[in-house]
Amino acid sequence: MLIGLSVLSFSYRCGLLGQGTSRAVSRPLDVEDMVALATRAGLQSIEIPLRLLPDLSPNRLHALRERLSLCGLTPVADSDVVDVDVLRAHIPAAAMLGARVLRVLISPVLEGYRRSFTDNWSAHLADVTDRLRTVIDLAAEHNVILAVENHQDATSADLTSICAAVDSPYIGVCFDAVNCLIVGETPYTAFERLGPLIRNVHLADYETYPTPHGWRLVRCALGEGDLDIRHIFNLIEQYTPEVTCQIELVSHSARHVRILDDDWWQGYPPCDVREVLPALRLFAQTMRLRDDDWRTPWERGAGEEQICLYEDQQYAASIAYLRAIGVLPRL
């Protein structure tokens, strides 16, 4: 496997969090800065949202491709919610960048709360599948795999269904280990269901805080939270040992999974409660209390210096953890 860095781990320092507000970072990092961060840590891959590049001109993309090659970094490119016109531009751009994988999303849904987005999730999935079919030949032409992420919205069954319907070696899955819990699945069961389809992995960890409606998931450094990361790596070795794995410590806002509310479940088909029990057991194992302060520095209204330090420290601690467990070589 190749261990890399998702640029979104530094969503504040890159200028995305708070963009256009008085809380935005004063001097955003650019892609070159992120390449330097990954290289200094001895990483082997980097995941870059194409929207962060000033433009997608061939000269710029080829120059960045050369830079990544010199640094020994395998690129993964990011698009957004599946859009045919956007992908007609992003697929060739990913190829020019040297990326074999282009991550895509199927909705803007967060916290698993589908009902706020649509009353007919099945129809939405069918529409997204049709859009992917429209561009899959272009993906094949450019030798780019479209990796659909479980982005706090999709279950393993949803992703399996999409991949089966598109029916191409150029469709796959971007697996986020924490997002599974947000739709009521354990990451371990979801990985086993999706294993052969996984083309990119997002490595994250979380701390769990109970609420009257469910649980809040709060970002933390790898190895400092409730996820069994060693188990995830064992599954990677078993199912997809050559995959790229990106450190992605993205959200500065706690994700409130209201899985105990009837309304939350309106966006899902009926299921046997035994299918959800493994996830509920993982949530319930937390030792934290409802009154514990779960807020990140961003949510507490902290200033720029503290939020930057928060991102830097979590990244450094994650690198140290991956070295400690032998996934990254010790320097």
Rank of each mutant, 00 (worst) to 15 (best):
V173T: 07
A126K: 14
R114G: 03
L105H: 12
R23S: 11
V166G: 03
G214F: 01
V25S: 02
E311N: 08
T296I: 04
V178I: 15
S251G: 01
E275H: 14
L73P: 12
Q285W: 00
V76Y: 00
G195L: 11
H142P: 07
A324L: 09
A24Y: 02
D153K: 10
S69G: 15
N143T: 10
L87F: 11
V81L: 09
I325W: 05
R219C: 09
S253I: 15
T118D: 06
S22F: 07
V135P: 06
A77I: 13
L52I: 07
V104Q: 07
C14P: 01
Q238N: 09
V135R: 08
C71T: 06
P92C: 07
D85W: 07
V135G: 02
H213Y: 14
R13E: 14
L280D: 00
T208L: 15
S79K: 06
A320V: 04
R300S: 02
D272R: 10
H90A: 08
R60H: 14
H62D: 06
R133Y: 02
A89V: 14
S57I: 05
Q19R: 15
L97W: 11
E237S: 13
V101C: 05
R13G: 05
P75F: 08
L138C: 04
E141H: 13
G225Q: 03
P49E: 03
G267S: 07
L194R: 06
R103W: 05
Q152L: 08
L203K: 11
Y12H: 10
P169V: 10
V273Q: 13
C14I: 15
D262W: 06
R193I: 00
P169T: 10
V76G: 14
R100V: 03
S318R: 01
G225T: 04
V35H: 01
Q246E: 12
C180D: 08
G20N: 09
D167F: 00
H151E: 09
A63L: 10
R199F: 04
T186C: 13
P92L: 05
I259K: 03
L52V: 06
L5A: 01
R281S: 11
R131F: 04
G18F: 04
G225E: 00
H90C: 08
G267K: 04
P241Q: 09
D293G: 02
D78Q: 13
Q246A: 14
D228S: 09
I136K: 07
V104H: 07
S156E: 09
S318K: 03
P241D: 03
R288S: 00
Y206Q: 12
N150G: 10
H90M: 05
V76D: 06
A317W: 01
L8A: 12
A41E: 08
T286C: 01
T39G: 05
E304D: 12
R65M: 03
L97Y: 11
E192F: 01
V273E: 15
T134S: 15
R255W: 08
Y12C: 10
D293N: 12
L56G: 09
C245A: 13
Y315C: 01
Y310E: 12
H90K: 11
T118H: 04
V104L: 00
A320T: 11
S22L: 14
D228V: 03
R216N: 08
F283S: 01
V144M: 05
I325G: 03
